[in-house]
Amino acid sequence: MVQNRKKEPIIVKRNQNYRKRMMEPYALLMPVLVLLLVVFAVPLINSFIMAFQKYRLGSPDIGFNGLDNFRKLFADDDLGLILKNTVIYVICSVAGQFVLGLTLALALWKKFKGRGIYQSVVFLPWAFSAFVVGLMFRWSFNGEYGVVNDLLMKLGVIKENIAWLGTPGYSLFVIILAMIWIGVPFFAIMILAALQSIPEDIYEAASIDGAGAVKKFFRITVPYIKPTIIMTLLLRTIWILNSFDLIVVITNGGPANYSMTLPAYMYTRAFSGYDFGFASAIGVILMTALMVYTLIFLKVTNYEEGM
């Protein structure tokens, strides 16, 4: 009886210690979880709610309006044009960045004199802010004073100035070009890092077996860097789709929405028209589209197996 009384507090204490130990990781994670909740989950949920509200900043009558914002969006005459621009912008920018980034990475893979300096120079665009790049392209492609027109005239490619930023088609082209320029280093850095992790002896073995350069590239290099390519493509697609800074700085979506993409339109409607309900509806659609894209992309590219 006496022995039992002594054992009981020990068990309780052990249980308490065990519980404390179990709770410790959660307690440690709590500040981060609170931070994420405040800066990520709350705005996300809020914007989801706003998508179903008549929410014009400053307007006294804010309230739920069902699917009105979505109806308004799908009835928008310019939606087709904006979606087309968005698809062209994303595909051309990602493809351009990938092809040039891969080429650059392959060029920098082998050692040569001055590689370090060359590498620093070509990676420089990644360090520039989109605002600076936007201004640079806006002035380079200025229809009257721009260096591009001047150069093309001197080379005899064009006979009269082109209003790059004021002509449908060309204005989007300039934005895509700027986006490619700014993003090539990211692909190059990521792919180069992956290339440098491929063991040399595999190539030596392949050479002994009589494999040529093309075969080695597709049978050894590509499979090795595939996870990096997939992840980089996925990330860049999402980033490019979401980015609107270059568009706002270079053309602000003009002329007549010919260089407007969906996120830029969302930004314009939110911060020029103050229609946060409508802008949130665009945001919800964008988010859904990106989630679907991510799932399909990872499935199609067999990312899990590639790892």
């Binding site: 229809g143 009257e144 209003a163 930023l165 004021g166 002509t167 204005s171 053309t251 003009g254």
Partner: peptide, 15 residues
């Protein structure tokens, strides 16, 4: 608007 369309203003001034 004819002033713009007929080239009496720079083409890029549309922006």
């Amino acid at each position: 608007t004819g002033m713009y369309k007929e080239g009496y203003a720079p083409e890029e001034s549309i922006n």
